[in-house]
Design a protein around this nucleic acid. Structure first.
Lengths: 210, 210
DNA sequence: TAGATTGTTAATCGATTAACAATC
DNA sequence: TAGATTGTTAATCGATTAACAATC
């Protein structure tokens, strides 16, 4: 099955926000909501919400709106939250270790299966029952442990090399925290989180404002 | 001076990437580069690069292109990198502490002046010479220490409250890692880094692909 | 001067918003 | 049935790309 309507990234990026808010409404016990009300609460137009959702199906009902619990479930499913993903982290410095410890992680069905680093001082340490292994053991590890997602916290210098190893070992998606643009085949999914870019954007806006 | 051409976020988000690449070229000793070449190397169109840069000035020269070192300096200045920013971190959990330790931080002229948390177990600890203080001391602290940027790593539940305190104490910009949308006056700059949204986007794309 | 490449205007493309017939 | 609100088509807005005169 190929649900390829070629949905734009702009739409996909809004889905987690919808899902989160619908989750909040579910907890509050709200039963139904219209696109108008949802839009007002979330700061979107009703039109945009209807357009966005209709990329994935007809979840609403004329004259009624959307059933909160159902829509929440649908969104969770679209976001792949009823699946389970196997994850490795490469680079266990400050931020790598912090994210390895991130408990919200497991709640989103991301199962941490391996941590790799080059630093002999930390190899062997355990984070949440997962041992930090030497990066040289990575290829061997992948033989026995098929992995869905690799999260890169290495230096920029190593990131491309690590990315190549991931790609060559059937990893399908990469979350990249190293401040470079990775070169990967077209069928590999990459999301970048460039912290220093966010800081610089902020500093740029501050600078503009004065 | 009001350099308000109302430059779009799409443009501003590309500036750190330009600056980073120009820095790399400077190090490599490259002296000049055309928008065409730059575009090919970075995966943008030459047209877009010229449009983007011309929002800020005429940095190029017909028939020659751009002087790498000069453009690098200009971009650094536009990004506010020749200024110094005073920063506080609120929420010193895993990720908050990791970022407090982040050395790249200082390189970008972000000077960490304070860390605050509610957890009595970690209050008093020092991270890079900065003591973690009780969040209740925050208002008093701001009296003597004017701060430019607040970075929020608290839970979603506390984030809005913290944001309000920042805003009421002349903090001008907020980097928000809590997965909620903050409510702030129009003149306050907010950048969101929603890690779980990035993870969900990735998982959504993986899900779409199969 | 001739060639190269800019800055900028015009054309295109895509995303958002508005409008409205369909229908619960 | 009448009112509400959807799904969807059409209009608008903004961002990207193409084109080209200006000029180094």
């Amino acid at each position: 099955m190929d649900n390829k309507k070629n949905i734009s990234m702009a739409v996909i990026r809004r889905l987690p926000k919808y899902q989160r808010y619908l989750g909040y409404l579910t907890e509050k016990g709200v039963e139904r909501i219209s696109s108008k009300e949802l839009g007002e609460n979330m700061g979107f137009t009703a039109s945009q919400i209807r357009q966005d959702l209709n990329n994935f199906g007809d979840f609403g009902q004329q004259g009624y709106g959307y059933n909160v619990k159902d829509l929440y479930r649908e969104l969770s499913s679209i976001l792949g939250m009823d699946r389970n993903y196997k994850v490795v982290i490469i680079g266990a410095g400050n931020i790598g270790q912090a994210l390895a410890n991130y408990t919200r992680f497991e709640k989103l069905n991301f199962h941490l299966c391996g941590i790799f680093d080059v630093n002999p001082k930390i190899i062997g340490l355990k984070i949440r029952d997962v041992e930090i292994k030497d990066i040289d053991e990575m290829v061997g590890f992948f033989k026995d442990n098929p992995i869905d997602i690799g999260i890169i916290f290495t230096t920029s210098a190593s990131a491309q090399k690590v990315s190549d190893i991931l790609v060559n070992n059937q990893v399908k998606a990469i979350l990249n925290f190293a401040p470079i643009d990775l070169n990967v085949p077209a069928d590999i999914i990459v999301q970048n989180v460039h912290l220093s870019d966010s800081l610089l954007t902020l500093s740029c806006l501050l600078n503009q404002n004065s």
